Simulated scan of single mutants.
Amino acid sequence: MQSISSYINPNTRGLTSNYKNTAIKDKEAYNGVMSQHLLNPVEDLVQALKTPIKLAKSASLSRQNNSVNIAEGQSIRVNGGHVLTVTTHGVEVSGGDNPYDTESYVKAQRMADALASMLRNAGGTMTTVAHSKEEYARYIEGITDVMSYLGIDTSKDFTVNGMRYSKNKDGWYESEANSDAQAAYEQLKANNRTYQFADEKTKKQIAYIRDYYLQTVPESVKAAWQETLEETSFNPFQTDAVSTLTQLSVEQDFLTGGDDNIFGETKESCLAAIDKILERIENPLAAVTEERAAYLQQEKEFYTVLASKIGE
């Protein structure tokens, strides 16, 4: 028997056996959301959808606390006589007063999909609930509608299966766990912009990239680089910024057909490379953002100190 592969359809967040359905229809919005709002863009969505949802042991509702516990087998009557039934593998739609009312069914299905994503998120089996602005809009609409049928007011903080949700600055429902994780992630990024407060993984990454660029330089230059790292506490290879060294290395590689060795083998060649880096920092090829300008200023300080140490 031939096994059938499962793929994630990022446009519907459903499983599909047709690989063609995995094409992203909203690439611009997808890229924007992925880079700005998702903590874990490489989440295994197929695995998340196959993992049973962690539901409440029993159903309950507290309008005073604006909270609801949703359990397996719970039925929610929504628009047009449709019924949403909660299972550990998703939310099913059944019923309907008019089988020809496609619009009513689509609305009920949207609520079912959104509720399933929220329940997976609340239970910790799904980190992200959308991959594009369009998908977030459908999710928000679905959650707003289904929560109103449950008697939950989404205009203020509300709790689903023990997880508190609130609207963030973009108007999207964000879980308390996600808010905490986002804050921790932002703090980690801030720490990893430095050398002194970077975690061990980041320090190993800095060392790995440094060794690649400095593989042919004198030992005295390597020592000067390490001293500069510790003195300036600046991480020249931040994950959210392209270093000027990398830009020049790529340009040289292209021009020479494979030689990306910027620093060469002598102190003099290293100082000449630093001059190129500083010149590019002062004269970038394109307009820079305020955040990029701050990074370039730190780069300038780093390479200025490095040059002084090499020249000693």
Rank of each mutant, 00 (worst) to 15 (best):
19 Y>K: 11
309 K>M: 00
167 K>F: 02
274 I>K: 04
290 E>V: 04
1 M>Y: 03
166 S>Y: 12
210 R>C: 09
126 M>I: 01
103 E>F: 00
90 G>H: 10
282 E>G: 15
115 L>Q: 12
212 Y>W: 14
152 I>D: 08
157 D>Y: 07
140 I>S: 09
292 R>Y: 03
78 V>P: 08
45 L>Y: 07
85 T>S: 05
278 L>H: 10
242 V>D: 15
79 N>C: 03
209 I>V: 14
187 Q>H: 13
303 Y>G: 05
206 I>G: 00
129 V>F: 01
87 T>Y: 06
9 N>E: 05
278 L>V: 05
226 Q>D: 12
14 G>N: 01
64 Q>L: 11
118 M>T: 06
27 K>R: 08
15 L>E: 01
32 G>E: 14
224 A>V: 11
29 A>F: 07
257 G>R: 14
130 A>W: 10
201 K>F: 07
279 E>W: 13
98 N>S: 07
303 Y>T: 03
22 T>A: 10
97 D>H: 08
208 Y>S: 12
176 E>Q: 11
176 E>V: 01
201 K>M: 02
186 E>L: 13
183 A>H: 12
41 P>A: 04
63 R>V: 10
165 Y>Q: 09
304 T>V: 07
152 I>R: 05
88 T>I: 01
301 E>D: 09
157 D>K: 15
252 Q>P: 02
118 M>L: 11
290 E>K: 13
47 Q>I: 00
258 G>H: 08
1 M>A: 08
44 D>W: 01
84 L>W: 11
211 D>I: 06
21 N>Q: 11
233 S>C: 11
240 D>M: 14
5 S>R: 05
224 A>E: 11
89 H>A: 01
122 A>Y: 05
254 F>C: 00
252 Q>N: 10
285 L>E: 12
166 S>N: 08
139 Y>M: 00
312 E>N: 12
260 D>P: 00
171 G>I: 08
283 N>M: 10
229 L>F: 11
98 N>E: 05
53 I>K: 02
79 N>Q: 13
32 G>T: 05
286 A>E: 14
254 F>Q: 03
193 R>V: 00
77 R>I: 13
163 M>T: 11
225 W>H: 08
168 N>C: 11
74 Q>N: 10
92 E>C: 03
158 F>M: 02
22 T>K: 04
244 T>L: 12
42 V>F: 15
205 Q>G: 10
238 Q>L: 02
8 I>L: 14
118 M>K: 05
234 F>V: 00
287 A>Q: 14
40 N>K: 10
163 M>D: 08
98 N>F: 00
293 A>C: 12
165 Y>G: 13
59 A>V: 09
233 S>K: 09
198 A>I: 02
77 R>L: 08
52 P>S: 03
250 V>Y: 15
2 Q>V: 07
76 I>D: 13
253 D>E: 06
113 D>F: 15
252 Q>I: 01
196 Q>F: 14
103 E>D: 13
231 E>K: 12
218 P>K: 15
98 N>V: 02
16 T>F: 12
106 V>A: 06
52 P>N: 06
33 V>G: 00
258 G>F: 08
76 I>Y: 12
312 E>H: 04
82 H>A: 04
125 T>Q: 06
19 Y>Q: 09
228 T>N: 07
230 E>F: 07
80 G>I: 10
109 Q>C: 10
131 H>Q: 14
123 G>D: 09
285 L>K: 14
15 L>C: 06
68 V>Q: 03
241 A>R: 15
42 V>K: 15
186 E>D: 15
165 Y>M: 09
155 S>N: 15
67 S>E: 14
215 Q>P: 01
251 E>L: 02
